[in-house]
């Protein structure tokens, strides 16, 4: 029983990190159709920004979350305005362009911050662990779960309950009609890309203390995040959440039975099968094309 509960918790904690990374990607892909391969690099930038703020400005992890969101978000905005917006009519080329951007960001960080691993320290209050039901939980993992939950809620509110969200959904459904109704799709897309990038930045800051921070850390995240987005179905926040939950739990379970690598292999094969037989994802709503 204890093994079972701690397994579930491990799964949840993998899922929460997956979800953090995938959420921004899902929004960018779902609403704009842009396959953003630089997304992993936004995560990396977030991690480095956190390290930088801690090292040189003495700002702790929690207050830096907001700063990192704004920093990485504005980088995302600049990239959308400068490059990505020219490619909306060539969706496959966004894969290439964003991979190029990813290489540039990686090299920029390598040239300025160095290629060596960086470490981000946890605040005292989060580095402990607590006993619940006789099982040891790391407080920081619980904290990540909490923040992820909050971010999901915020994103959902933003998309469903604000004017910006309504406009974005209108553009996603039919860009021409939305523009005819006076919605400035250029501005909305810029903000959406910035928002997605900002979320990736926050993900980077949160994983910085538990994973190593290096210029090429992003590559590991981006493929996993894509699997989540594909599994969840395009354009559904709840679907993305559910998909990361499934992937996290299955990965944890398989890793317990076999090992980490084989768990990942099996999960990937399952996702490929899913794309083949249900390309719209597990949880997508019907959309008229």
């Amino acid at each position: 029983m204890e093994v079972f509960i701690s397994q579930i918790f491990t799964g949840l904690s993998i899922a929460s990190i997956l979800l953090l990374v995938a959420l921004g990607l899902a929004i960018i892909y779902g609403s704009m159709g842009v396959i953003n391969l630089a997304h992993g690099e936004f995560v990396m930038l977030g991690a480095y920004a956190t390290w930088f703020l801690q090292q040189y400005a003495g700002i702790g992890l929690i207050p830096s979350l907001v700063l990192v969101f704004l920093m990485v978000g504005s980088i995302g905005w600049v990239i959308e305005r400068g490059i990505v917006r020219h490619l909306y009519h060539r969706p496959l080329d966004t894969i290439l362009a964003t991979w190029g951007i990813g290489i540039m960001l990686q090299q920029l960080v390598r040239l300025t911050a160095g290629a060596e691993l960086r470490y981000v320290e946890l605040p005292e209050s989060l580095s402990r662990s607590v006993d619940l039901l006789g099982i040891n939980f790391s407080v920081y993992r619980l904290f990540i779960l909490l923040v992820t939950g909050l971010l999901i809620l915020l994103t959902w509110l933003l998309l469903m309950r604000t004017e910006y969200g309504t406009k974005l959904r209108a553009i996603t459904q039919n860009r021409e009609m939305a523009e005819c109704s006076g919605i400035d799709s250029q501005r909305i897309f810029g903000l959406t890309f910035a928002f997605g990038a900002g979320l990736a930045g926050v993900a980077g800051s949160l994983v910085a203390p538990i994973k190593s921070v290096s210029p090429d850390m992003g590559t590991h995240y981006v493929v996993d995040a894509f699997m989540v987005v594909v599994l969840g179905g395009v354009g559904s926040v709840a679907g993305t959440a559910a998909a990361s939950g499934i992937l996290g739990e299955v990965t944890a379970g398989m890793a317990y039975l076999l090992n980490d690598t084989l768990a990942k292999v099996i999960v990937f094969i399952a996702v490929v099968m899913l794309i083949r037989f249900r390309p719209q994802g597990l949880f997508s709503q019907l959309v008229r094309k």
């Binding site: 490059i83 190029g100 290489i103 540039m104 990686q106 090299q107």
Partner: peptide, 11 residues
């Protein structure tokens, strides 16, 4: 630096 230039060139 070359990798950086190559990335930009590619974009």
């Amino acid at each position: 630096t070359w990798q950086l230039i190559l990335g930009g060139f590619f974009v």
